[in-house]
């Protein structure tokens, strides 16, 4: 709408739509209606993921009890609703939501566990997640839902560059706020979600789940589900990983992780 404002304004400000109103007014009215309509279909989907699909039993690994799991679910859902009211957060959330909805987490973690290479080693040996494949998938899904948390604090001033990477000092502040907002969240999950916005190049001890969260969210945000793959073109995910491998420094991704995930996408024709 913003890009085509000049062409839209004469029609939209005519008698049939919003007679005599300014572009600013028309734009905000339309945006509000559009937001409400999208929320109408998006929120039930998020709710279904949080309450029905994602299995929060992995929280018990971090000492969380059954009652706390429900509290955590409520806390996350409230957080997402708040997040969706922030334009930048709303935009960033599309990556998280798509990564979960399009089974990106499930299929890549499945491949990671079949392959037992670098990513598996980083998850199990380095991060020491004593979890099953399914538990790690659920862990990552929650990490993805929480990843856009930085946008609830107004991040522009804390970005290192235009790639969305934040400084470690700002990340620590966000972690602190998130701890207060959802007290039942385990520390590992908070660090994973917030850390996914930090560059691996600057922070070599970044958790494997943070690195995966960042990659999967960006992947899911970039690729379209309905894209026509022309004959002569690589598949969307393979293309994305190939480009990501060349931009890994800019976006702060782990190149070895990208290499392995690229291989999975190529082998499976994703």
């Amino acid at each position: 709408m913003e890009m085509n404002a000049q062409q839209l304004l004469p029609t939209l400000s005519s008698g049939a739509f919003f007679p005599g109103e300014s572009w600013f007014k028309i734009h905000s009215l339309l945006k509000e209606v559009l937001g409400t309509l999208i929320d109408g279909s998006l929120l039930p989907g998020v709710q279904r993921q949080i309450y029905d699909k994602i299995n929060f039993s992995f929280l018990s690994v971090f000492g969380s009890q059954k009652g706390f799991q429900d509290k955590t679910k409520d806390g996350i859902f409230t957080f997402v609703k708040h997040l969706l009211s922030v334009p930048e957060g709303r935009k960033a959330f599309s990556g998280s939501y798509n990564a979960i909805g399009r089974q990106i987490v499930d299929k890549y973690i499945e491949a990671v566990f079949n392959d037992h290479s670098y990513v598996h080693f980083e998850l199990i040996k380095v991060q020491r997640l004593k979890m099953s494949k399914e538990e790690i998938q659920n862990f990552l899904k929650v990490s993805l839902l929480l990843r856009p948390v930085i946008y609830t604090f107004g991040t522009n001033m804390h970005k290192d560059n235009s790639s969305g990477i934040i400084t470690t000092s700002f990340a620590e502040k966000v972690e602190e706020s998130l701890r207060k907002e959802i007290p039942s969240l385990p520390e590992a999950l908070i660090k994973s979600a917030v850390g996914s916005n930090v560059s691996f190049n600057d922070h070599k001890y970044l958790q494997a789940t943070s690195r995966l969260t960042s990659i999967m969210s960006s992947l899911a945000q970039s690729i379209k589900s309905d894209i026509t793959v022309d004959r002569g073109a690589s598949t969307p995910e393979k293309s994305w990983f190939s480009i990501a491998r060349r931009n890994y420094k800019y976006f702060g991704w782990d190149i070895k992780m990208l290499d392995e995930l690229y291989r999975f996408s190529a082998e499976n024709n994703w």
Partner: peptide, 26 residues
Amino acid sequence: FALTVTDPIHVMRRGFMENDYNLEVK
């Protein structure tokens, strides 16, 4: 001919023309 000449050109042309078309040439 299509595989080795026009298909890669088509993919590149779309990549140049469309902001959200970022598929690589196979």
